[in-house]
Design a binder for these strands. Sequence first.
DNA 1: CTTTTGACGGGGG
DNA 2: TCCCCCGCCAAAA
Length: 111
Amino acid sequence: MKKEKGQFFKDVYEVVKLVPYGRVTSYGAIARYLGASGSARMVGWALNGAGKYPSVPAHRVVNSKGILSGRAHFGSSDEMKNQLEAEGVKVKGDKITNFAECFWDPGTELL
DNA sequence: CTTTTGACGGGGG
DNA sequence: TCCCCCGCCAAAA
């Protein structure tokens, strides 16, 4: 059992993979769940490496405003939006219109 | 080793 | 309501 230096990254991936189909979560919610509340940036930075992990539905992670802030990191600008809409998430431009309906907080609902 | 970055969040103007 | 600034902390250069 060895401690890997990217432990934070790993934790983020695990939580993101727990996001149910048709649901989304925010960077801050994940950060808070990991005990890194306030360090939401770390979650975003961690997801920067999530592209190497196809099991990590990074497209289900948006900022607190329900905006697809990370869409630019996907293959295409519409990739993230496309996948969210495919799961029943209503996306208008770069924002989730039914954000409150599909929002999933790991520290609240997963608990 | 130091410095910059980075897909955020919240507060203030 | 929109725009700007600060704080958070780990990873990469």
